[in-house]
């Protein structure tokens, strides 16, 4: 078990006139190597929740364990935890500040007091992970880049501290479809090739349903659904619609076919899957027709 939350509650402005309860009794286990999508409406507590993973916020009550260590106990070195759990905030391009991209990505490793060679190696590695050419980009100013590139540099600056887990808050917000797909496929590759645990946080079902292995659905500070996306779309479609999150378009299409009386599997995530499923059904019923006629 990599991260374990036990009955975590969190309240903003505790004992103040503007007190708001953001997290309600959340218990959660995250294993090493998982690829998770955390989904919920704006203001449901997603960002608050992920800030508990690396000790940026301390729960009002409850415990957070990272690799079995209670991170809010006295004397725990939170910097070590933050090396293990890399948190990428929304619009990470807004946190860039160095003169060159090299320095930007080297910021984290430098704080770990590594040698020059090791820092360079890590920068090369991190830039490669986000598919930016070291020779072309290293000496450029991060402020001269496009939005999507800036975001990838910001991502690289977290990857260069070699976290075991990567948490990304709305990584695709404000990007064009091309930049969005690029980030998502890179995340997938980082998870598959390096075995890094990845959590994608989003309010948009279309974006993450397709690529994650496990879906966590949050609503008003609680985790209401937890499981593989196919299972959730098949069994709990009504709950998703009830909380206003809805289904991906393809999945909705299949549900409507089912509602019209077609016997069809509704837990599909991609257009390709849906195509295959529908063709299979049509062929089967054609066969049955032929048998009847024959």
């Amino acid at each position: 078990m990599f991260i374990c939350l036990e009955n975590v509650n969190f309240t903003y402005n505790l004992h103040m006139p503007f007190e708001t309860k953001a997290l309600k009794d959340i218990s959660l286990n995250i294993n090493e190597g998982e690829f998770i999508g955390l989904i919920g409406h704006t203001g449901c507590g997603k960002t608050t929740l992920i800030q508990h993973f690396n000790g940026l916020l301390e729960p009002t009550s409850g415990k957070v364990y990272v690799e079995g260590l209670d991170i809010n106990e006295r004397g725990v070195n939170l910097r070590l935890i933050r090396q293990k759990v890399g948190l990428v905030f929304q619009y990470p391009e807004n946190q860039l500040f160095e003169e060159t991209i090299f320095q930007e990505v080297a910021f984290g490793p430098k704080k770990l007091s590594l040698s020059e060679d090791k820092i360079e190696k890590r920068v090369r590695e991190a830039l490669k992970m986000v598919d930016l050419d070291y020779n072309l980009y290293a000496e450029r100013s991060p402020f001269s880049l496009s939005g999507g590139e800036m975001r990838r540099v910001a991502l690289a600056s977290i990857l260069s501290i070699r976290p075991k887990m990567l948490v990304l808050d709305e990584p695709t917000a404000n990007l064009d479809p091309q930049g969005r797909n690029k980030i998502l496929s890179e995340m997938k590759a980082i998870h598959d090739n390096f075995g890094i645990t990845v959590i994608l946080v989003s309010h948009n079902m279309e974006i993450i349903a397709e690529i994650v292995d496990r879906l966590l659905v949050m609503h008003r500070g609680e985790i209401i659904l937890d499981g593989p996306p196919r299972e959730i779309f098949e069994k709990y479609a009504d709950d998703l619609i009830k909380v206003g999150l809805g289904l991906p378009q393809v999945t909705r299409c299949m549900h409507e076919l089912r509602a019209k009386g077609k016997e069809i599997y509704t837990g599909v995530l991609t257009v390709e899957d849906a195509e295959k499923e529908i063709l299979d059904r049509v062929r089967k019923s054609n066969k049955q027709l032929k048998i009847k006629k024959g």
């Binding site: 800030q51 940026l56 948190l87 946190q95 600056s157």
Partner: peptide, 13 residues
């Protein structure tokens, strides 16, 4: 506050 948190996550102290 947001920027501070982001930089802390990147290893700033």
């Amino acid at each position: 506050e947001k920027i501070m948190k982001a930089q802390i996550s990147r290893g700033a102290d």
